[in-house]
């Protein structure tokens, strides 16, 4: 019997953070499953999932990480997962779409779009933004399985949103991006 944990860590970026954190997990007999990390404005944040023997507790893990020698403190948060949650499939559903948003930078773009998604029961699977020459660009990967609107109506709503917000908003199926940028077909 194994115990699954989700660990999130934030710290000022420097060489060796991933080595230290995964070293602490390894010493506790943990098996690392998945890890995502990103750096923004000199700060690193990562989220990882690992499985441990049942006797290992969250507190053991916090203690192991806090013993790591480092100039800037790690901010750590840990959650235990039920077995079902740990096995959740990672593949994108058939109704995965990519939404792109482009326009001059202003406050509230991300909030507006994410609120739009929430209002229509659309889950955001992934989100990337870039700011260049005062142009703001967002690309969102969306799960439309539980969306309250048919695709055609959603398209109309997005057109309206596009007009009102002065942003260029477009939606295309995820497969289109896969086939045009990857060797294999879905």
């Amino acid at each position: 019997m194994k115990k699954h944990m989700i660990i999130s860590v934030m710290s000022k970026d420097r060489p060796g953070i991933i080595a230290s954190i995964t070293g602490a997990i390894y010493q506790l007999g943990g098996d690392l499953a998945d890890l995502n990390q990103t750096v923004l404005c000199g700060y690193l944040t990562m989220i990882l999932s690992a499985s441990f023997d049942v006797q290992v507790t969250k507190e053991d893990l916090v203690a192991a990480i806090s013993h790591i020698k480092t100039d800037s403190k790690f901010e750590v948060s840990i959650k235990e997962l039920s077995a079902a949650g740990a096995d959740a499939p990672e593949t994108s559903p058939e109704e995965t779409y990519i939404l792109t948003v482009q326009g001059p930078n202003k406050a509230g773009i991300v909030h507006g779009i994410s609120q739009f998604c929430f209002d229509h029961n659309i889950n955001i699977l992934d989100l990337a933004t870039t700011l260049k020459n005062d142009q703001y660009t967002m690309a969102l990967q969306l799960d439309l399985r539980k969306c309250s609107l048919e695709l055609e109506h959603l398209q109309k709503e997005l057109d309206d949103y596009s007009r009102k917000s002065d942003l260029t908003v477009m939606i295309q199926h995820n497969d289109i991006f896969q086939v045009t940028h990857e060797i294999s077909m879905p």
């Binding site: 990519i98 792109t100 989100l127 990337a128 690309a139 969102l140 990967q141 991006f177």
Partner: peptide
């Protein structure tokens, strides 16, 4: 992972 430049080229 989303790559905005690739996505925009396709769009």
């Amino acid at each position: 992972m989303l790559r905005s430049d690739q996505i925009l080229a396709t769009v």
